[in-house]
Amino acid sequence: MKNLKITALLAVMAFSPFYANVFPTEGTSFVKVLADAVKWKAETIDVGTIPQGKPKLIRFEFTNTSSKPIIIENVAPSCGCTTADYTKTPILPGKKGFVEASYNAANAGAFVKTVNVTTSDSKTPKALTFKGTVAAS
């Protein structure tokens, strides 16, 4: 019974307003800092109509807006019909880098594909999207 009272008291203290202001809430948020480190020229590109069976190169460009170099650690296309290339060297503050996707459409019709990019600045992948329509050949 004594252990139950102690546990209940600790639970009440854990959720009390005393602990509500442990972390500062003013200033720049952590999420905003991560979001501003890489500024993409476009996160979605509409490629329009492309021919079936002929690779289409899509280029996503970005600027390093942070105060430290950024390295692209991983680029993962959403399907096997897409290959990717990217800036392999560190991108210095204020400089530009790129991610390229080469899409080879086997089927006619509308499509939406993504390329997930992970950088040294954020371990959460950024989804870059390209879309369009494949015209039958």
Results as ranks from 00 to 15, higher is better:
residue 123 K to M: 15
residue 70 I to H: 01
residue 55 P to C: 10
residue 63 T to C: 03
residue 50 I to M: 09
residue 99 V to M: 05
residue 45 I to M: 03
residue 129 T to H: 03
residue 134 V to K: 07
residue 76 A to V: 14
residue 12 V to M: 14
residue 119 T to C: 11
residue 31 V to T: 09
residue 62 F to I: 06
residue 62 F to Y: 10
residue 38 V to E: 07
residue 85 D to V: 05
residue 90 P to D: 00
residue 62 F to P: 01
residue 108 A to V: 13
residue 78 S to L: 04
residue 88 K to R: 05
residue 58 I to E: 06
residue 41 K to E: 14
residue 52 Q to N: 04
residue 86 Y to K: 10
residue 9 L to N: 04
residue 29 S to K: 05
residue 81 C to R: 07
residue 33 V to W: 00
residue 27 G to P: 00
residue 115 V to M: 07
residue 74 N to Y: 03
residue 132 G to H: 06
residue 62 F to G: 00
residue 104 N to G: 11
residue 4 L to K: 13
residue 79 C to V: 10
residue 114 T to I: 13
residue 117 V to F: 00
residue 83 T to N: 12
residue 109 G to V: 09
residue 78 S to R: 05
residue 27 G to F: 04
residue 89 T to A: 12
residue 23 F to L: 14
residue 96 K to V: 10
residue 123 K to P: 06
residue 53 G to L: 11
residue 72 I to V: 14
residue 31 V to L: 06
residue 133 T to I: 09
residue 58 I to N: 06
residue 49 T to K: 12
residue 7 T to N: 09
residue 43 E to L: 07
residue 127 A to K: 10
residue 50 I to P: 10
residue 61 E to P: 01
residue 38 V to Q: 00
residue 98 F to C: 05
residue 87 T to V: 04
residue 82 T to K: 06
residue 100 E to K: 07
residue 20 A to S: 14
residue 29 S to F: 06
residue 62 F to Q: 01
residue 98 F to S: 06
residue 114 T to G: 11
residue 114 T to E: 10
residue 48 G to Y: 10
residue 57 L to I: 15
residue 57 L to V: 13
residue 51 P to L: 09
residue 60 F to R: 08
residue 31 V to G: 01
residue 22 V to M: 12
residue 133 T to W: 01
residue 19 Y to T: 08
residue 69 P to N: 02
residue 86 Y to H: 09
residue 21 N to S: 14
residue 51 P to Q: 07
residue 124 T to N: 05
residue 122 S to D: 15
residue 68 K to N: 04
residue 74 N to W: 01
residue 111 F to Y: 13
residue 112 V to G: 10
residue 21 N to G: 06
residue 65 T to I: 08
residue 84 A to Y: 03
residue 48 G to E: 12
residue 28 T to C: 05
residue 114 T to S: 15
residue 4 L to H: 08
residue 133 T to E: 15
residue 95 K to R: 11
residue 121 D to A: 14
residue 39 K to C: 00
residue 86 Y to P: 04
residue 55 P to F: 07
residue 14 A to M: 10
residue 104 N to P: 02
residue 97 G to S: 10
residue 68 K to H: 09
residue 72 I to R: 02
residue 81 C to W: 11
residue 128 L to A: 03
residue 56 K to H: 15
residue 104 N to W: 05
residue 66 S to M: 04
residue 52 Q to R: 08
residue 70 I to E: 06
residue 3 N to A: 13
residue 44 T to D: 03
residue 133 T to C: 02
residue 127 A to Q: 08
residue 58 I to D: 08
residue 60 F to A: 13
residue 119 T to D: 06
residue 106 A to R: 13
residue 17 P to D: 12
residue 84 A to K: 02
residue 92 L to M: 14
residue 27 G to I: 04
residue 88 K to T: 04
residue 12 V to T: 11
residue 53 G to P: 00
residue 64 N to D: 07
